[in-house]
């Protein structure tokens, strides 16, 4: 019983310990509060921004960038994964490019995105799209190869052509992989958008963080990151995790 309680409470205990350590460190001169701020200062700022609604347009800006890029990247990744699957020669030809896309630290493309597409919406959407596209493409390509051979053969014997197979066999089987790719990429999508905002933006959570840095206001940085993290967790818990459970209800191994 005590163990169960401890288990349920442990995440909160960890957070509380970290906050205490942070507070203690700034209090006893181990860290400089000018650069690290203090828990209650950040908490007050978060409350103030929430109460006044100051943070809302910034959250909305980042949210729109991520949302657009997320949808574009998922759709494009699915389309290309299917194209590669049905045209293996093309896939072979493009393989080095895919490897490069996957291995390269994609955040370094942020400066190019800002240079090419400006400091408005477009550059962020482009980078988020690229990140989500890559993850979806890789995850779905691997997934499509694992679709049960017998199921495909059976459908073909029953008269399924390529478009029937795509619609009734590959797409439903792929959905599980797409959703799991979405769960993996949501955090990276926010990272991409925020990094892009750091480099050039007029609003957004990344802009808040950048503003906090240039004005040496660490509480701004912390509060900005707090909102980003909360949104990612909320999206995962409220949308993606239930979606994954729902989509794989028939998967009983």
């Amino acid at each position: 019983m005590a163990r169960r309680w401890l288990g349920a409470a442990s995440p909160f205990l960890v957070v509380a310990t970290l906050l205490l350590a942070w507070d203690g460190a700034t209090r006893f001169g181990l860290a400089d509060p000018r650069y690290l701020s203090r828990p209650w200062v950040v908490a007050a700022l978060i409350w103030e921004w929430t109460r006044s609604g100051y943070i809302l347009p910034h959250v909305a800006a980042t949210f729109v960038e991520v949302g657009l890029g997320y949808v574009c990247g998922t759709v494009a990744g699915m389309a290309v994964a299917f194209l590669f699957f049905f045209r293996p020669r093309l896939a072979e030809l493009c393989d080095p490019l895919v490897v490069l896309l996957n291995a390269a630290p994609r955040a370094i493309l942020a400066p190019f995105a800002v240079l090419m597409f400006g400091i408005d919406l477009a550059s962020k959407v482009m980078l988020v799209t690229l990140v989500v596209f890559t993850i979806t493409l890789l995850s779905l390509s691997a997934g499509l190869k694992e679709v049960d051979r017998t199921i495909v053969d059976n459908a073909r014997v029953m008269g399924a052509g390529t478009s029937d197979l795509t619609r009734h066999v590959y797409l439903p089987a792929a959905l599980v992989w797409v959703v799991s790719a979405m769960r993996i990429s949501i955090g990276q999508a926010f990272t991409a958008a925020i990094v892009c905002e750091l480099l050039g933006a007029t609003k957004g959570l990344g802009w808040i963080v950048a503003a906090g840095q240039s004005a040496v206001k660490p509480d701004w940085i912390m509060a900005g990151l707090f909102f980003a993290a909360v949104i990612v967790v909320l999206i995962d818990v409220a949308i993606l995790a239930p979606l994954e459970r729902r989509g794989s209800h028939w998967r009983v191994f």
Binding site: D148, T150, I151, D153, N154, A155, V157, M158, G159, A160, G161, D164, H168, V169, P172, A173, W250, R251
Partner: peptide, 26 residues
């Protein structure tokens, strides 16, 4: 028609939809 050794039904479709499928394909 081919009845495979392994299960070959579509796990994401109902029994009814699985039996209708060949009619749809054809």
């Amino acid at each position: 028609g081919y009845l495979f050794q392994k299960d070959a039904l579509l796990p994401w479709k109902t029994v009814q939809a699985n039996v209708e499928l060949p009619l749809v394909f054809r």
